[in-house]
Design a protein around this nucleic acid. Structure first.
Lengths: 140, 140
DNA sequence: TATTGTTATACTCTATAACTATA
DNA sequence: TATAGTTATAGAGTATAACAATA
């Protein structure tokens, strides 16, 4: 049994990414969070007052899909949505949201360290710049 | 607006992968194929007679999810499912399937070349071994 | 006119449980 | 007992269209 696609970086990128994402999801779920929610908590903690739309643009999540995610975080008491300019909602974490964001950050840190340690030392420094070059949105 | 996760390779891996996958999907859809279908055509072309289960294990697709995918490819006249040992189905491409697999392969090749060319030369050779180290299934 | 947030809807991928048939 | 294939079902992510309210 031979996989003729193993020589393609895009294919390996996809396989490695889905495997890594599944592992991260299994770690972050102990906080009752999905990957996207954990990410959003970090972004909003760092950018209080950011609008739903701006957050969505940052994460490549569309407005329409942002609505139920933000509403769920608000319903859980982790985030507030405050009207800012009449049509926009400024997002900020509650105290409870900040606490959970910190716990999530610890899990993220450990995960990322584990991931980095799996990379042979001679390739380690090259992964990030190579991936950034593949990610067009990084230039926006 | 600042993304505090931009320094994490796992996060960049996820963002780069979803962007690349979306781009590939938009290219392969002109053949009426999804990414998973294009992949399966390549694997079956290279491994005629492979069972659905073995194919699923190779691609991290579960048996239960393999069934409708294989049935759809068969219904389109691209693949045959021949009983092999009574409980297994051996997969092989039809002539039409081979033709489409070749067209898909051309799109894959162009896509992968484009992707590789985006990586700065000094990092290019390091991406594949770094990703393979992150992908545990590669060792199975 | 453009943007924000919302609702509705649909498609894809993924995960689990339960079943039959066969090794 | 273990494996192959199937069915049903649910969760999650993503995409588009249309709408009201506001800039």
């Amino acid at each position: 049994m031979r996989d003729p696609l193993l020589k393609y970086p895009g294919y390996i990128l996809r396989r490695a990414s889905t495997a890594a994402m599944a592992e991260f999801a299994s770690r972050i779920v102990v906080l009752g969070l999905r990957t996207s929610e954990a990410t959003i908590l970090q972004i909003v903690a760092e950018n209080p007052g950011i609008s739903q739309s701006a957050l969505g643009r940052m994460l490549d999540i569309q407005r329409a899909n942002m609505t139920p995610i933000a509403a769920r975080l608000e319903a859980r008491g982790l985030m507030r949505r405050l009207p800012s300019d009449g049509r926009s909602l400024g997002l900020e974490l509650t105290d409870e949201g900040h606490l959970l964001a910190e716990k999530a950050r610890a899990i993220i840190d450990t995960f990322e360290t584990d991931l980095t340690n799996r990379i042979p030392a001679e390739h380690r420094a090259h992964l990030m710049p190579a991936l950034l070059a593949l990610w067009p949105s990084a230039d926006d």
